[in-house]
Amino acid sequence: MKIEKDRKGQELTLTLSGRLDTTTAPTLEQELQQSWNDISTLILELKELDYISSAGLRVILTAQKHMLKQGSMKLRNLSDNVREVFEMTGFADIMTIE
């Protein structure tokens, strides 16, 4: 998985590509923990993310919980595979998806 960071003031966009699975989820978790303290908006751009497993969902859920305390989090451009996993797990109902 590749993570690209784009910071504009209080807004951080992380563009993820590849696979967010049991192996790569800790990398995203680490990246978020380093970056989320002084931002008010977190955007995850997921157009190029073509696989997500529960390990990735858990990291995203943790990020959501954290961001709700200090601002907001949005998910953008989910690929079909990723959208389906969000829908089957009910994540589509509790996340802000654009």
Binding site: Y51, S54, A55
Partner: peptide, 17 residues
């Protein structure tokens, strides 16, 4: 591709978790 994706996802979830 869809079938491959689903197989990989199922295997990861069952094995690892």
């Amino acid at each position: 591709r869809k079938q491959i994706h689903n197989l990989q996802l199922l295997c990861e979830e069952v094995l690892v978790n």
